[in-house]
Simulated assay, not measured.
Amino acid sequence: MNVKELQKKAVEVRKGALDIIYRAGAGHIGGTLSSADVITALFYEIMRYDPKNPALADRDRFILSKGHCIEGYLYALADCGFFPKEELKTFCQFGTRLIGHPNRDVPGIEMNTGALGHGLSCGCGMAKAGKLDHKDYRVFVLMGDGEINEGSVWEAAMFAASHKLDNLYAILDRNRLQISGCTEDVLRLEPLKKKWQDFGFYVREVDGNNMQELLDAFAELDKVTGQPKLLFMNTVKGKGISFMENNPPWHHAIPNQEQYEKATAELAFQAKELK
């Protein structure tokens, strides 16, 4: 896909996530919308995988460490052919495998997440295994900025740098909001970029809602050897839906019919503008 096609797909991923959440009456929309662009870049352009063979040994691995922001991820998996799109209508319904967090019963999902702070540690294990097995796959781990309050993230960061895991791509969704409010009010994180650099990561900072910047950054990170990488994404929580953007209650608020229709109209306008 070219950049405009990927931008259109990102709008589609946002609309798919909105539909999933509205239909189920459950979900986490704010962080799903802020990370929709990187999900699109990864699954429609960057990553190597085969939806007909999800266990392909040489596939790139993706871990959604901020597991509550699953709706865009599920939409992308279904759209890419891992499971039927019709199944998305069962999200959070009784007996479904599409629960509110990643679940390995779903093809394309590498690990169960939702208890925050575990994804990078498991990503380190996958990346180290790739090194030991002389495989060239990459491991992408998407984290939330509120999530890195967890000490296990920093233990994993030390491990990754110590073992020179240059096949590990940590991705930080820096939207500056978490369930309790602004990240700097809950537990101060800054100077955050410098912290990751001091822990031994090669850090590339981007506008995480800019598709061209994302593609350029991944191309740069692919050339880095001898150290793990961090894609530091400055994003807008609720991106793409005006009344949700930078609005803390939309961490997990559910739109009513009027709000759903307004959001749908805004996304439809964005899609039309990209034609």
Rank of each mutant, 00 (worst) to 15 (best):
L56N: 11
G114P: 03
D58N: 14
F94G: 01
N149V: 12
T113Q: 02
G67L: 09
G123M: 04
T96I: 10
A115C: 13
A78H: 03
D133M: 14
F94N: 07
M143Y: 01
F43H: 07
H134P: 04
V106H: 02
E71R: 06
F159M: 12
R59G: 11
L120H: 06
G81E: 11
L64R: 02
Y49L: 08
G123F: 02
R104W: 09
K52M: 11
L64Q: 06
E147S: 04
A161M: 07
G81V: 11
R59E: 09
N103S: 10
A41V: 02
K85H: 03
G117D: 01
Y169E: 08
N149T: 12
M143H: 02
D145S: 04
H134G: 06
D145L: 03
I70A: 09
L64A: 08
G100V: 11
R48T: 14
K128R: 15
H118L: 13
F83M: 10
G114A: 07
A76F: 03
C122A: 15
Y75H: 11
Y73R: 06
A76R: 05
N53F: 10
L56H: 14
H134D: 15
K131T: 10
A55I: 13
M47W: 08
T96Y: 00
A55E: 15
A160H: 01
D58T: 15
G114F: 06
T113W: 00
F62A: 06
G81F: 12
A41R: 02
E147W: 00
N149S: 13
F159L: 10
M111K: 13
T113D: 04
P84R: 09
